[in-house]
């Protein structure tokens, strides 16, 4: 840059070239600058994932193993006591991470596949198909989703599959709206027109031209939707139409042990028991939100310059 070339050369034009960094190096750089809240969120999230993955190794007993004493106190053998039919609560908390998070994850993935895919198609098409899809989504969104989910679950039965499919479809409406809104800004770009002029198929345009340019908001939304799906499942389980026994799940654990809370005046630990799965839910939601906030902040360019 200091040596100004005498004659004009295209390759010598000045442009800002970023240093080539490996992916790991870039992630490490970003992490170094991350705020405490993001670190907290990441650590909690990884801890949950480890627990979910290695549940059978970490849990002292089997998921549905029944011991003779129901409503057992907190003691050496049963760290958080036993539940109404004598299952170890600590074990079920660990398995609950696996079931609730696993189902929520699959559901969110499915809702992104449906909502994201249709949203992209609608954004590219922008004609009758867009109208039909968007109005259908409006109708679905007009119905309170928890009530709608309750109704559908009572029609199709509370199996894990129908739970996943129903929540995914109801949730995909929001993903559809977001994807369509951000994709519309990208669809009008000249490079998308160039791809159309080249004769590219819609699949290529969706995957290669548009998707990479709308990833940041979608990833952030994935985190938030995951939290919401997870809360919905917990809520449905609490109402009794979610994940069915004997599968361990935090929502139903709160419900099954809810009555223990009135014993708090005699034994504070017994009173805390139903709050443990609730705390697990709350902590995960907070952690996910911290991570999403940080990700949105770094990827959206919404930075304080000073």
């Amino acid at each position: 840059m200091n040596e100004a070339p005498e004659s004009y050369a295209a390759a010598a034009e000045v442009a800002v070239v970023r240093k080539r960094r490996g992916r790991l190096e870039r992630i490490w750089l970003a992490l170094k600058k991350a705020p405490v809240s993001a670190w907290f969120g990441l650590i909690v999230l990884s801890a949950y994932i480890v627990v979910a993955l290695f549940a059978p190794l970490l849990a002292p007993y089997g998921e549905a193993e029944i011991f003779p004493a129901p409503f057992g106190p907190w003691e050496e053998a049963h760290r958080f006591g036993t539940d109404q039919i004598g299952r170890d609560i600590f074990t079920r908390l660990i398995y609950g991470a696996r079931n609730t998070m696993g189902i929520a994850f699959v559901t969110t993935l499915l809702s992104f596949a449906i909502g994201g895919g249709l949203g992209l198609v609608a954004a590219i098409n922008r004609s009758w198909l867009d109208q039909i899809l968007s109005r259908a989504v409006d109708v679905l969104m007009a119905i309170p989703s928890l009530i709608f989910a309750l109704m559908l679950l009572s029609i199709f039965g509370s199996t894990v599959t129908s739970l996943i499919v129903i929540i995914a479809i109801l949730d995909s409406t929001r993903v559809f709206r977001l994807t369509r809104a951000v994709a519309i800004n990208v669809v009008v770009m000249d490079y998308v027109e160039a791809a159309k002029l080249r004769g590219e198929k819609i699949g290529w345009i969706m995957r290669r031209e548009i998707l990479p340019n709308i990833m940041p908001p979608l990833i952030a939304e994935f985190g938030l939707r995951f939290s919401f799906v997870f809360l919905t499942i917990a809520a449905l389980s609490f109402l009794g139409v979610g994940i069915q026994p004997p599968t361990a799940d935090w929502g139903s654990m709160v419900r099954e042990n809810a009555s223990l809370i009135q014993f708090a005046q005699y034994d504070i630990k017994a009173g805390l028991t139903p709050l443990l799965p609730a705390a697990a839910i709350a902590l995960l939601t907070v952690a996910v939100n911290f991570v999403v906030d940080w990700f949105l902040h770094t990827s959206s360019g919404l930075k304080d310059e000073h």
Binding site: M189, Y191, A194, P212, N213
Partner: peptide, 22 residues
């Protein structure tokens, strides 16, 4: 495809004519 291939286009704003992620 060959008709598309034979006529190409160059745009005014090179910025928006190229996918920033490619």
């Amino acid at each position: 495809q060959s008709q598309l291939q034979r006529i190409q286009m160059i745009y005014q704003m090179a910025d928006t004519a190229m996918n920033p992620r490619q």
